[in-house]
Amino acid sequence: MQNTDIHIRRARQADLPGICAIEHELFPDPWDESAFRDALYLYPGLFFVAENGNGIIGFVSAGMEDTGDAVYGHIMNIAVRRVSQGQGAGSKLLQRIEFECMVLGAGAMQLEVRVSNLGAQRFYQKHEYAQVFMVDSYYNDGEDAILMMRWFT
């Protein structure tokens, strides 16, 4: 079910406590506030929140990477509160970050996802992301990651 009351805007310092609350709700190895502060400082144009009448319900942060051969966006973190999942916030955040990265010259988007997070993998596949390869012991607890990409051209 799509919710048209979801608004996407650039993240601000004042949003960090709400972003951290979502991060701690969803992830077994959450980023701390200093990591989000660094992401906001380094990539202020690539950090967004989704909000509705109840406040911040999700966020996405990304960076740009240039391999010398290609430029791509790298989604560092994306999350939507459990109670708000399935209402379109994740798709809106993903579309916004992809657009912003394309404007900056990205030819593709990259992200890592836990091998155990099948729901997230299905979400990314629905948005045209494909598995590229596995990264052994990517997460702090030793779990492997799947590197997924979506090419724009």
Rank of each mutant, 00 (worst) to 15 (best):
L94Y: 02
Q2N: 09
D136W: 04
Q125I: 01
I146G: 02
G88Q: 01
A50L: 04
Q110G: 09
G53S: 07
D69F: 14
E98P: 02
I57G: 00
V80R: 00
A70W: 15
R37D: 08
T153C: 07
C20R: 13
Y72D: 06
A50M: 04
H24A: 02
L111M: 13
Q121W: 05
I146K: 03
M109I: 03
C101L: 01
P44C: 05
A120L: 06
Y41Q: 11
D141R: 11
R82D: 15
L94F: 06
M76C: 10
L104R: 15
A108R: 11
S61F: 00
V135T: 13
I75S: 06
M149H: 01
L42V: 09
Y72R: 13
K126A: 10
F47R: 02
M149Q: 12
D66W: 12
I6R: 03
A130D: 10
V115L: 04
T153P: 05
L46R: 10
P44I: 03
D29G: 06
K126S: 05
V80I: 00
D38T: 08
W31L: 13
A14D: 15
L42D: 12
A79K: 02
V80T: 00
D136A: 14
Q13S: 13
G18L: 03
N140E: 09
L16M: 04
E25L: 03
A62K: 08
Y138F: 14
R96E: 13
V113F: 10
L46V: 03
R37S: 15
P30D: 13
A50Y: 04
S34H: 10
A11I: 11
G63L: 03
G68V: 09
C101V: 00
G73K: 10
A130T: 09
I56C: 13
Y124N: 12
Y41E: 04
R114L: 09
M149T: 11
A11N: 04
V135Y: 12
E128N: 15
M109D: 05
M1E: 02
F123K: 05
A14K: 08
A21N: 03
Y43D: 06
D144L: 10
Q87S: 09
C20T: 14
Q110E: 14
Q13G: 09
G73H: 08
G55D: 11
